[in-house]
C-alpha cells in the first residue's frame, strides 16, 4: 500500500506539473480542475475504487475534496431529500475548510509575513 500511495500521488502531481509547464494555466486553474475531476470521478463511481486501491495516495490530493463534496451531498439526498442534499454537502469536507480557516487565522495573528 505504501508503494501504491507513492506512485499514485506522484503520477498525479507529475501530470499536473507537465500541464503547468507546457500551458499558460496558473496553479489556481490546475487545482480547481483537479477538484472538478475528483467530483467527476466520484460521479462515475471510480474515486471510491481509487481510494480502495491507493489509500492515502488518493486522499491527500485536492481531488479528494471534490469527491467528498459529491459523495456527502448524494448521501444527504438519499437520507432526507433536497434539504439533506444542501445541508450535507459540506459535511465531510467541512473538516478541511474549518481547520484551514481556524489555523490560518490564529497563525496570521501570531506570525508576520516574510518578504
Amino acid at each position: 500500500m505504501y508503494l501504491q500511495a507513492f506512485i499514485f500521488a506522484g503520477i498525479v502531481c507529475l501530470i499536473c506539473q507537465v500541464v503547468l509547464d507546457n500551458t499558460t494555466l496558473t496553479p489556481g486553474h490546475i487545482t480547481s480542475s483537479v477538484t472538478v475531476i475528483g467530483a467527476l470521478l466520484s460521479f462515475l463511481g471510480i474515486y471510491d475504487k481509487i481510494v480502495a486501491c491507493f489509500g492515502a495516495g488518493a486522499t491527500v490530493l485536492i481531488a479528494n475534496f471534490g469527491h467528498m463534496l459529491y459523495s456527502a451531498g448524494l448521501a444527504g439526498y438519499e437520507e432526507s431529500g433536497i434539504l439533506g442534499f444542501f445541508s450535507n454537502m459540506l459535511c465531510s469536507s467541512g473538516i478541511a475548510i474549518v481547520s484551514v480557516v481556524v489555523f490560518s487565522f490564529v497563525f496570521t495573528l501570531v506570525f508576520k509575513a516574510k518578504d
Binding site: F8, A9, G10, C13, L14, F54, G57, A58, T59
Partner: peptide
C-alpha cells in the same frame, strides 16, 4: 521533483 515530492506526501499520508 513533482513526482518525487507528491509521491512522498502520499507515502507519508499512508
Amino acid at each position: 521533483i513533482a513526482f518525487l515530492v507528491g509521491g512522498f506526501v502520499g507515502f507519508i499520508g499512508e
